[in-house]
């Protein structure tokens, strides 16, 4: 018995380790399933007009004024993203969202909120201001796309400003105005307002994505097929 004891202990620990790992994985799976809304279940947080629950609810109008939106105002699905231009997972998610936006052109509306992680990403706040400064000249989304597409180029640069100016030039912006705006208090406040709204909603990391007001699990956002299925369900629920 004494000779077998170490083997029994080792096998016992192996079983406990495997069970522990499976248990830890489990909550994430539950969350993942929970995010798949049943068409008959009303989505929490989305504002439904009382008495009109059987008609298409005006979900897309629930975003705060001044929010950057892309897509049709009557789209049944609103996808809101809190993101940081310097965050690698946000850069990873960007092409997935772009692809879905083009596939669901009339049914999906996308809102973007800044959530720069200032303590970990040194150029994040400046990148957010660069997008806002481009927005003053009507090119927010073009700069938004460019910042994500060129993320690898600027995220580790000692200073990002020269690269942001290059992108502004590519977009045909008035560089003098862009430079003035990027350092303006108004632009800085816009970014901070987004951060405040995100913090109020419980955002702690990026990307955080809401689909018609429901927060999605990270693994659902990074998977094109899952996110597509979730969008399909939302569309079906609104029909």
């Amino acid at each position: 018995m004494r000779r077998k004891l170490p083997i029994i202990i080792i096998v016992g620990v192996l079983l406990v380790a495997l069970a522990g790992g499976a248990l830890l994985m489990h909550p994430s799976r539950t969350l993942s399933t929970a995010t798949l809304p049943s068409p008959s279940t009303p989505t929490p947080r989305a504002v439904n007009t009382p008495g009109t629950s059987t008609t298409r609810p005006a979900v897309a109008t629930t975003v705060a004024p001044g929010t950057h939106l892309r897509g049709r105002s009557d789209a049944p699905v609103l996808l809101e993203e809190y993101a940081d231009f310097q965050c690698p997972p946000c850069g990873f998610v960007h092409p997935i969202l772009k692809r879905l936006e083009s596939e669901y052109e009339t049914q999906l509306r996308v809102a973007f909120h800044h959530f720069p992680l200032r303590t970990t990403h040194k150029h994040a706040a400046e990148a957010a201001r660069a997008a806002e400064a481009a927005g003053v000249q009507g090119k927010f989304w073009q700069m938004h796309d460019l910042l994500f597409e060129k993320q690898k180029e600027w995220k580790d640069a000692p200073t990002a400003r020269p690269l942001f100016l290059t992108y502004a030039r590519t977009l045909g912006l008035d560089l003098e105005k862009f430079t003035r705006d990027i350092d303006s208090t108004v632009i800085s406040n816009r970014v901070m307002n987004d951060e405040t709204s995100g913090a109020a909603r419980g955002v702690t990391g990026t990307p955080t994505v809401y689909l018609n007001g429901r927060e999605l699990a990270f693994e659902d956002v990074t998977n094109y097929n899952t996110l597509r299925a979730l969008i399909e369900r939302e569309i079906a629920a609104k029909k």
């Binding site: 997972p89 970990t120 990391g205 955080t208 990270f218």
Partner: peptide, 24 residues
């Protein structure tokens, strides 16, 4: 190590966060 493996596989730690360098 099991905790970190699960965090990685589930994608939780891969998300960038304000408080931890774990995401990096």
């Amino acid at each position: 190590a099991i905790f970190l493996t699960v965090e990685h596989l589930s994608g939780r730690s891969v998300r960038c966060t304000v408080t931890s360098g774990c995401s990096e």
